[in-house]
Design a protein around this nucleic acid. Structure first.
Lengths: 191, 191
DNA sequence: GGCTATGTATACAGGTTTGTAAAGTCAAGG
DNA sequence: CCTTGACTTTACAAACCTGTATACATAGCC
């Protein structure tokens, strides 16, 4: 419960619902939420609209499911990178983001969605939760790996801003800024 | 020429066009681009649709004009703050952003627009230019005020990421992150 | 006076959007 | 054998969207 009661368990989804979610995830990220209609999603996934509405309620529900599913599949990738990383493990965040940026070219899906949606949208809490988890996980790693840091919370937020600032501008400045952010972060952690 | 040939000179606009631009700027920022229709803009500004299309061509043209106008009115405010600031003047960026954040609550208008628009959209170059000007102006101030800095370009980008990272998350984390970013920046500049 | 630019009022074309209704197919499992 | 659940097909309702056409009013300026 708590967070997990909103998880999307792919095994619980019918094949049609799973296909819809896959196609919607791809299109929503590549083109944004508003430009992609449910007709397009239904056509592309070869599953009909009534099934879409039966499974996700309405478009807003599908958007929320898209972001939840994206988080749920991405998070284990992050944790695996953290588990495999040398100390200071906080740099693993930069590596995972850089790896993502090789295949996805529109920056942060959550910030993009937040820019399009009103705060009342059911997906907005998903966005907030995702960012909150990133920020707190980063703070945990700093506190564990650099226990002698005078102000670990401030250092964690410092890295958070470097990481997220670079990713937010990925579409404008490309991957270079992310690499530069990583170098700066490395310098900060060495002291 | 160069950049200025795309400036929006408010004196060159007819009263109707000016009103349209004002109303569109407000609505596009507050609600986003896609949710605001031209009918709404025409109704709210009490100027009819044919005048809107005569002055701005189409909705895309109005969106581009919105961002150009926003930049053109904001930039002198920034320059005034820079002129009035003590060294290191780079901190003036944080103060202007923080002042903005008191009245506007949806973060960076340019990142928000970038998230909604395709790269082929006529407004996209306006977004790129705005961010580029911010980044280079910041680098100029660093180079002038801290001439002994070993790597001024890297320090400038460091501040850029702190500044923009905090502003990009304004809608999620509020003004606190911006204040924290400023403190971190102050610490970096003191050395 | 007459030209030009600005704006109004009204209506419409043509397309796209979300969302629903109704009837029927197909396969697994008790 | 028969119920249940997943899915299809087709059609439709009701908004909403961008953009245009037509005809008229008004005011400044040469």
């Amino acid at each position: 419960m708590g967070v997990d009661d909103q998880r999307i368990d792919l095994d619980d989804l019918t094949p049609g619902a799973r296909k819809i979610l896959e196609v919607a995830s791809e299109l929503f990220y590549e083109q944004g939420i508003h430009p992609v209609g449910v007709d397009t999603i239904a056509a592309e996934s070869k599953v009909t609209k009534p099934i879409l509405y039966k499974n996700f309620g309405n478009k807003d529900g599908l958007v929320a499911a898209y972001l939840r599913h994206r988080h749920d599949t991405w998070w284990p990738v992050l944790e695996a990178a953290i588990a495999a990383a040398e100390k200071p493990r906080a740099l693993a965040f930069f590596d995972v983001y850089a790896e993502d940026a090789k295949t996805i070219t529109r920056g942060c899906a959550y910030l993009n969605a937040a820019a399009e949606l009103a705060e009342e949208h059911p997906a907005y809490s998903v966005i907030r939760r995702h960012k909150h988890l990133v920020r707190t996980r980063l703070a945990e790693l700093i506190a564990e790996d650099l226990p002698d840091t005078p102000d670990p919370g401030s250092l964690a937020d410092h890295l958070f801003l470097l990481l997220e600032g670079a990713f937010a501008h990925h579409r404008i400045y490309g991957a270079g800024l992310l690499a530069e952010g990583r170098e700066i972060a490395e310098g900060l952690l060495r002291r």
